[in-house]
Amino acid sequence: MSSKTNHWIGAVGMLIMCGMISLHGGITLLYLSMTSATSTAQEILIFYVLGCLSVVLIPLMGASCERVVLAALAVKMLLVLCALSIGSVWTIPEALCSGLIASSSFYFAMREVSKRQNGKLLASVLILVINVEAAVWYTAFDWLSELRSKMWLSLAYGLATILPLLYISTFINTAVTQRTNIKQLLHLSKSLSAYNLFCYMLAIFSVNCFNLSLHHWAKLDTEHWWGSVSGITGFYILGILSSVVLLSKLIIRDEKLLIVALLGLGVTGYWLAGDATQDALLLIAAAFGLGNTSTLVMSSIVTNLAQTHDTICRLLVVAVLAAMQVCLISLIRITEVFADSVINEWQVITIATIALIMLKIRQLCIESFTFKP
């Protein structure tokens, strides 16, 4: 084999393994939604994002991100062994460890994106790889859950947990550790764009809600393939594929692309908050739209975030994204208490996208009418 062929094989293997560690959070959320009978989706999500937020402890302790992730993966394997031996899944430690691993995956993904010139397109391809893998694993989980076999489901989950170890051991060297304090982190946070972070967080939040809702949606239409986990995931991936095609063909400013993507995400959230879950065709259309718009939102911002070459900055970005999700979930719970009603996560996503669109339009209008000397 030529060196060029070996290079491409290595690059493909790297993307697949990087995709598996990035997919870990989604697999965990689906796994917990299938196995946790006592915890609600919001409870699972809050512990998951608290695990994501704990990534900020890595630079504060001066630890190595790679070694912390390896330790978290080792704990996960112990939890899988416990689930196999006693037949009970420990939701809270599973969600906390998975949040830490999934949030660190952004750090690994940014390392790969920052190595290439066309970061936006590579980010879209990486997202596509992640979701193709998701289709395989989600289909397997759906099939195993239909067999009513928690042992085989936990075994498959354990296999999916082992795969990220291959990525870290094969493609990643332990980086030089950096230690910082809270004052330095606050100073670094001033250089981050709050608007971009909020848009990115909203896209991640919608994907997390999709992973938690997928098993429930699959129960609404058991007569057709497109109503199953694999069917809904398939249309979601088609949406991602369409966004990759759009990004490769369109020549458009990131600001305008972001407005269009947010508008689409808001419309999708409106569907999912209302009639989409009652109609099979609307549901698959919403899944397609969610895959398309969430990818466009993240792709139009990720190049800017990838410019944070420093390890501490990348981990800080992840921590801020997690903190924003914690605040958003807390706001939903507080609103439910004081409004004495149930607030749908998709309703919040719709309202938030409208607010972000209005802020971006206002910003563009001010820039257009500003006279430079």
Rank of each mutant, 00 (worst) to 15 (best):
A37W: 00
L220Y: 01
S124D: 06
L45G: 08
G227N: 07
L100Q: 09
I301Y: 05
T5K: 15
S105G: 12
G266P: 03
S228N: 06
L321E: 11
W90N: 09
A41C: 08
P373N: 13
T174I: 02
T91S: 13
C97W: 10
G234H: 02
I357L: 11
F171W: 10
L197A: 12
G227R: 06
T295D: 10
W225C: 06
G266I: 01
E146K: 03
E367G: 02
I101T: 03
G51H: 11
W217C: 08
I16C: 15
S103A: 15
F288P: 00
I9L: 15
T38P: 00
L186F: 11
W217G: 02
A276V: 01
I361H: 01
S64I: 00
T370A: 14
T5Y: 13
V317W: 05
N173Y: 12
F369K: 06
M324R: 05
C365D: 09
N344H: 09
V89G: 06
Y107T: 01
G99N: 08
H309D: 15
H224M: 05
N6T: 03
W271G: 10
R314K: 12
L163I: 14
V113M: 14
T170R: 15
A102E: 09
K120C: 05
I354A: 15
W346Q: 11
V49P: 08
L315T: 05
T174H: 08
D340M: 08
M77N: 14
A83Y: 07
N6F: 12
S54A: 14
V56F: 10
T170D: 07
C313G: 12
L321K: 00
K360V: 00
L214E: 05
T170S: 15
A286K: 07
Q347D: 13
L321F: 07
W217A: 07
L188S: 09
T38V: 04
S341P: 01
F106V: 06
T91M: 15
L126I: 05
V132Y: 04
L53Y: 05
F288S: 07
I237H: 03
L128C: 05
M324F: 14
V132R: 00
A72G: 06
V176D: 15
A123M: 09
G19V: 01
S149M: 07
T233L: 10
F338N: 07
V89R: 12
C313S: 12
I251H: 12
V176R: 12
W8Q: 15
I301L: 14
F235P: 00
C209E: 13
I301E: 06
T5D: 13
S300A: 14
S368M: 11
W152D: 05
C52K: 06
C18E: 04
V267Q: 02
V348E: 02
L263E: 07
V69S: 04
G239E: 11
I101C: 11
L328M: 12
V136P: 02
Y200H: 06
E223V: 02
D279T: 00
P164Y: 04
G239T: 00
S230E: 11
L128Q: 09
L281T: 06
I182Y: 10
T91E: 11
M17S: 13
T38N: 15
A355I: 13
G158D: 03
L144N: 02
M324H: 04
L220H: 08
T161K: 03
L122A: 07
G158I: 02
N118I: 00
P59H: 07
T293Q: 05
L214D: 03
Q325S: 12
A175W: 01
Y157F: 14
E367T: 01
